[in-house]
Simulated assay, not measured.
Amino acid sequence: MNQDAYGHVARIGKAIGNGNRLELLELMAQAEQSVDDMARVSRMGVTTVSSHLQVLKNAGLVRTRRDGVRIYYRLAGPEVAGLFVSMKDVAARFLPAPFAADSSTEAGSSRDVVPLIHTIDEARDAFMLDVRRAHEYLAGHYPGAVSIPLDELASRMDEVPRDRRVIVYCRGGFCLLARDAARLMRDKGIDAWAMDEGVLEWRAGGSVELTATA
């Protein structure tokens, strides 16, 4: 057997075999990200993020771009997002407890009260709302989706229609921004639903052709 080949592939598994690194991959699936930006969003220390990124870079999973003194990181390709999604799907099937609809969450949490849209076909003719950060939206979003970052939603609620179903999406299946946004809108009487997938899955599978805004 070709042990070198097995070992080479195993480097990939080792690199992504860490929850914090998976979170960073999800962030980079949205747009290029700096170390400082990823540290702020993930609430990890800058040194910790840098260390995780080095592991991912050494495994060939991320690329970098320097702009002055700042370095930006991005996924090496859509296949990296696909690898994450495949792992997530396998985990959901064979380790289902954390993924189940009735998994333990605090009573009244967004997971408990927000109806979910499971496929993009269910979102046809709806008002699509992107609640990620603005620069993530600009890097690529569902065609025709409107951008209202979650932290601006309460003050911009009048921009959301009340005579159409509203479908909210965010970074991916593990991201709770869409659920939190849908819950906030439903409390205001808006027919809001959350996608249980997002940009990570769309980049991986090509099921949605994302639109970048210049």
Rank of each mutant, 00 (worst) to 15 (best):
A59Y: 07
A81W: 13
G60L: 04
T47P: 00
R63S: 02
Y72I: 11
R66W: 06
R93S: 03
S103F: 00
A97V: 11
R43M: 10
E79V: 09
L53E: 06
D121S: 15
H118V: 11
R65N: 12
R66T: 12
D102Q: 05
G68K: 14
V80S: 02
T48H: 11
A59K: 07
V49D: 01
S51Q: 13
L116Y: 12
P115A: 07
T119S: 13
L83R: 03
A91W: 11
A97H: 13
E106G: 08
H118I: 04
G82N: 08
S104W: 04
A97T: 08
S104L: 14
E106W: 08
R66L: 07
G60K: 08
A81D: 11
V55P: 00
V49M: 02
R66C: 04
T105F: 13
V114L: 07
F94W: 15
R66P: 02
D67T: 15
S86I: 03
R93M: 07
V55Q: 13
V55G: 00
V80Y: 02
I117V: 15
G45K: 14
T105A: 10
S51Y: 12
E79P: 00
P115N: 08
Y72M: 07
I71W: 01
F99L: 07
A92W: 06
F99N: 01
R74G: 04
F99M: 07
G45L: 15
Y72W: 15
A107I: 05
V90Y: 14
V85D: 12
I71M: 09
V114K: 07
L75H: 01
R43Y: 03
D112S: 05
G82P: 09
T105S: 08
T64D: 01
Y72C: 02
D89F: 12
I120D: 09
F84N: 01
V90R: 09
Y72K: 09
I71P: 00
A97Q: 08
V85W: 15
A97D: 13
F94S: 02
R74Y: 09
K57M: 08
G82S: 10
G77L: 01
V55F: 10
Q54C: 04
M87I: 13
A91H: 13
V62P: 00
D89T: 13
L75S: 02
M44S: 04
E122H: 09
A91N: 06
V46G: 02
E106Y: 11
F84P: 00
G68T: 14
T64E: 05
N58K: 11
A101F: 09
L61W: 07
H52P: 09
Q54H: 06
Y73S: 03
I117W: 10
R111D: 12
R93E: 09
V55T: 15
S86V: 02
E79H: 06
K57I: 03
V62E: 00
G82K: 11
P98I: 06
P115I: 03
T48V: 13
Q54D: 14
F84Y: 11
A100N: 06
E79R: 05
R66I: 11
T105K: 08
D121Y: 15
E79L: 12
L56T: 08
G60I: 02
E79F: 12
T105Y: 09
N58W: 11
S109C: 10
